[in-house]
Simulated assay, not measured.
Amino acid sequence: MGRYAYVNGSFVRHGDASVHIEDRGYQLGDAVYEVWALFDGKLADPEGHFARLERSLGELRIAMPMTRAALTIVLREAVRRNRVREGLLYLQVGRGVAPRNHAFPDGDVPPSVVVTVSAVDRAATEAKAAKGVAVITTPENRWGRCDIKTVGLLPNALAKQAAKERGAVEAWFVDDLGFVTEGASSNAWIVDAEGRLRTRDTNANILRGVTRFTLLDVLREEGMEVDERPFTPAEAKAAKEAFITGAGSLVLPVIKVDDHPVGDGVVGPMAMKLRRLYIERARATAI
C-alpha cells in the first residue's frame, strides 16, 4: 500500500505530492510545523501540540488555515489513509504562495498546509531506549526566537549531522554562558549528582516542548520535584543520569555526553521509569 500526503486541501500519493515553487515556506522558511507521536493510530498530547501550533502561527502572524476541529479531522484522515498505528505525523503550515519578496504578501493569501505520516517500529525504539544513546555538545548558533517552532532548521540539521558523524543521536546546544539550552530536536534533562531532576526553563526562549510539558505534569502527579534550572556540560557528565524528550524520542536515556560516560555509562532507573510513565499517559490521552 502506498503512502498518502495532504497538500492544500487534497490527499495525494506521497510520491506525487508537491508545493508551488513560490511557496514561502520553501523559499523563505516562512512556516511552522508540529510533529505528533501516534499511538494505536491516535494523536498523542493533542492539546499541547494544537496550542503550540496556534502560538507559533500567532507569533509569525500567519492565520490558522482552518478551525482546530477541522484540522483534527484532516490529521485523523491522514493517519487512516496511511494505515499507521504506531508512528509520527508531520504538519507544516506556511504563509502561502506569493511572488518572492521578503515582506509579507499583500492581500488575502491562504496558508499552505502539508501533512505526512510515517510508521515507527516501537520494538526497535524500545530496544534503543534500553541501550541508551550518546549526545554531543555544540555552541549555540541559532536565532533568538527558538520558542517559535519554525521550519528554519539549518543549524539544527548541521548539529544533527555532526552528532551522526561522531556516533551520537543528538546534539545539545550550549549558550555563551556555558549552559545547555536544548537539543537539536529535543529537550535536555539530567538527574544531577545530588539526585535532582533538572531541565532548563522555557523562559530562555527554548522550544516549549510538548513532551516536556506532559512529562512535567506526570512528575507533579507522582509527587516528584523538578528543578527548572540550566546545567552545564560538565554537570551533565557528572550526573547520575541524563535523557532527552521529544515527540520522536519520547523519553530517551542518554548514557554518554561528548564521549564521556554519564553515571555508570548505562541506562539508569529514573529515565526508564519516566519513559514508561510518559508512554502510559500519552496512550491514555491520545485522540
Rank of each mutant, 00 (worst) to 15 (best):
Y6F: 15
G15Q: 10
S18M: 12
E22G: 01
G25T: 06
V32C: 14
K42R: 15
L43A: 03
A44R: 01
H49P: 04
A51N: 13
R55G: 07
G58I: 11
E59R: 04
E59M: 07
P65K: 05
T67R: 02
A69C: 01
I73L: 09
I73Y: 00
L75W: 02
R76A: 09
R80W: 11
R81S: 05
N82A: 12
N82K: 03
G87D: 11
L91C: 12
G94Y: 01
G96T: 04
R100S: 05
R100I: 13
N101E: 13
D106E: 14
G107A: 09
D108W: 12
V117P: 06
S118T: 15
V120K: 09
A123E: 12
T125Y: 14
E126M: 13
A129R: 07
G132M: 02
V133R: 04
P139R: 00
N141Y: 08
R142P: 05
C146H: 02
D147H: 08
N156T: 09
A159C: 11
K160E: 11
K160W: 06
Q161M: 13
A163Y: 08
K164M: 11
G167R: 06
F173Q: 04
L177Y: 06
S186K: 01
S186T: 15
A193G: 10
R196W: 05
T199N: 03
R200K: 10
D201M: 09
T202G: 00
T202P: 01
I206M: 01
R208L: 14
R212D: 02
F213L: 10
L219F: 08
M224N: 00
R229N: 13
F231K: 01
A238G: 14
E241P: 07
F243C: 02
I244P: 01
P253A: 06
V254W: 02
I255L: 06
K256C: 15
D258M: 06
D259S: 14
H260Y: 04
P261R: 03
P261D: 06
P261Q: 06
P261S: 04
G265E: 10
V266R: 14
P269K: 03
M270E: 08
A271W: 00
L274C: 03
A286H: 06
I287Q: 12
